[in-house]
Design a protein around this nucleic acid. Structure first.
Lengths: 247, 247
DNA sequence: CGGAACCTTGAGGTGTATCAATGCTTGTGG
DNA sequence: CCACAAGCATTGATACACCTCAAGGTTCCG
C-alpha cells in the first residue's frame, strides 16, 4: 500500500504552513483544539487523492508538494481548475461529495481533519471561518484571473502567464526579490501544463521552444528554467509589467 | 444626473432577495442593524457601476437587474469573469480597490452598505460571514465550471452552455420545472455573450443561427428564446443531461 | 539493452478570428 | 409621417492559430 496515514499530535507552532493555512489566525488555544483532531496523510506522485463525485469525509491543507484540481468531460477532455500549493485548502465545508478530481503531481503531505469535527470547530471558532473566507476570496480572484488567460490569451501568452506565476511565487518563497534572474524547476509535465492552459501538449512544447529561442527563458533539460528578466516575461504574458510588483 | 441614491429604511423582511442574499441567515435583530446602514442606488443600463482600480467604499447586493464583472487587457481584449444576478454580492471585504469593472447590463438597483460599517457588522455577526463564505464558495464553483467552458469547449458547446445556464435559472425562478419548453429573453447582447465565452460576436451570431437551424432553440426576434427540450440543449453543451437535474 | 514515460518537431487540416458588407430595429428631428 | 442615423445582428470570404496525426528523440530505470 502506498498510502500512509499518521496520527501525529506534533506541535502546530512549528508547522511550515502555520502562517498561511486555514489555521493562520488561530491563537494557542484554538491550535490545541485543532491538534486534537488533525492527522497527516501522504500521497505519492501520480496518486489520485480524491475522485470527483466521491464522498468527502475529510478536509485539509496541503503541507508539502503540489496537487491539481481537474474536471473531466465524458469524452475525456480535461481542464485543470486549480493548482494546490502548500497551505492551500482542500474540501468544502457543508458539501459531502467532491466536485473535482484532486491528483498529487509530486509527493504530497496533507494535514487532514474529519469533516464533521472540523465543521463543528469552525462554527465555534470565528478565526477559522474568517481565514477560510479570506482564502476562498483569494482563490476566486485567482480563478477569475485564469478565466482571462483561458478566454483571451494566445498560446504564447498563456505559457508566459503560467511561467510568470510560478516564477514570481518561487521568488517570493525564496525571498530573492524580482530584480535578478529567477531559477526554478517546473512542477508540471507538458501535459499538465496543457490541461491548465486549455491547449494541447504539442502546442505547449512548441511555445516553450519558441520562448527559449527568443531568450525569454533559458532551459536546462526539460524542467529547469531560468528567467533572466521577469519584466520581459510578464510583457510576453500580456500583463502590465509595472503593476506594482516590481517595487 | 442619471444616478439615483435613496436612503430607505424600508423593511428587509419584504425584500425580494431576502432569502438568497448575504443577509439570508440573519435574524430579526441582525436585520435591524443592517437596515440602519443600508441605502439603495439605481443604475441605468450601460452605466459602469465600478471602475477597476478605483477605491471601493461600499459593498452591496444586486436587488434587481443584471450586471457584469469584466477584466480588460491593455490592448482592449476583454473577458467577462462573472454575471451578477439579483441577490449576488458585489465587493470584497478587506480590500479597498476594485479588481474588476462592474457594468449594469439592464437597469440595476443595488442595496449598498458603506464598507467600514459593514466590515464591523460582519465581525460581530457570524451569520453574515457564514453566508458570505457560502456564497463565495458557490461563486468559486461557478468560476471553475466556467474555466472548463473557456478552456475546452467548442464555440457551439460554449453557446449551448450559456443558454442552458440561463434557461435553467429562469425555469427555477418561474417554478415551471424542466419537463416542458422553457421560454426566456436573453439578457445579454451578442457582444456581451462573446466576452463571456471568449469568442467574437460574429462567431456567437453564427452558432446561435446554427442551433436555431438545427431546432435546438427557437428564436423570435434576436432575444426571445424558446428551448423545446432542455435535455437536448445540455447534450449540445457537452454536459451530462442526467446529472440529477431532470428529477 | 530494451522499454516506458516524457518531450520535440513536422506536415497538414480545421475552427475560429478578421475584415467587410448588408440587414433589421428603434428613436429622433425635419 | 418620412428620412436618417445609431446600435445591434447577420452573413460571406479569407487568413491564420492551434489541433491532429505521425515520427523520432531523450532520459531514466529495470
Amino acid at each position: 500500500m502506498t498510502l500512509n496515514t499518521l496520527v501525529d499530535h506534533s506541535n502546530c507552532e512549528d508547522c511550515p504552513i502555520r502562517h498561511r493555512a486555514v489555521c493562520a489566525r488561530c491563537d494557542a488555544d484554538e491550535l490545541i483544539a485543532l491538534e486534537e483532531i488533525k492527522y497527516y496523510r501522504s500521497f505519492e506522485a501520480g496518486q489520485t487523492i480524491i475522485w470527483s463525485g466521491d464522498q468527502m469525509n475529510f478536509v485539509g491543507s496541503v503541507v508539502s508538494g503540489i496537487a491539481t484540481l481537474t474536471q473531466t468531460m465524458e469524452d475525456g477532455r480535461t481542464q485543470m481548475v486549480g493548482l494546490l500549493l502548500p497551505s492551500d485548502f482542500v474540501g468544502r465545508p457543508g458539501r459531502d461529495s467532491a466536485a473535482y478530481d484532486v491528483v498529487a503531481t509530486t509527493d504530497v503531505v496533507m494535514c487532514c481533519f474529519r469533516k464533521k469535527p472540523f465543521e463543528d470547530l469552525m462554527n465555534s471558532t470565528p478565526h477559522i471561518a474568517q481565514r477560510l473566507l479570506q482564502m476562498t476570496l483569494d482563490e476566486l480572484d485567482a480563478a477569475r484571473e485564469w478565466m482571462l488567460v483561458l478566454g483571451r490569451k494566445t498560446a504564447r501568452e498563456k505559457i508566459a502567464s503560467l511561467l510568470s506565476i510560478i516564477a514570481r511565487r518561487d521568488a517570493s518563497v525564496s525571498q530573492k526579490g524580482l530584480s535578478g534572474p529567477i531559477v526554478f524547476d517546473l512542477p508540471l509535465t507538458r501535459e499538465a501544463m496543457a490541461d491548465y492552459l486549455g491547449l494541447t501538449l504539442e502546442t505547449v512544447s512548441r511555445q516553450i521552444s519558441a520562448l527559449k529561442k527568443d531568450k525569454v527563458i533559458l532551459l536546462e533539460g526539460k524542467r529547469h528554467v531560468t528567467v533572466p528578466d521577469i519584466g520581459r516575461l510578464m510583457e510576453e504574458a500580456g500583463d502590465d509589467a509595472d503593476g506594482g510588483f516590481l517595487v
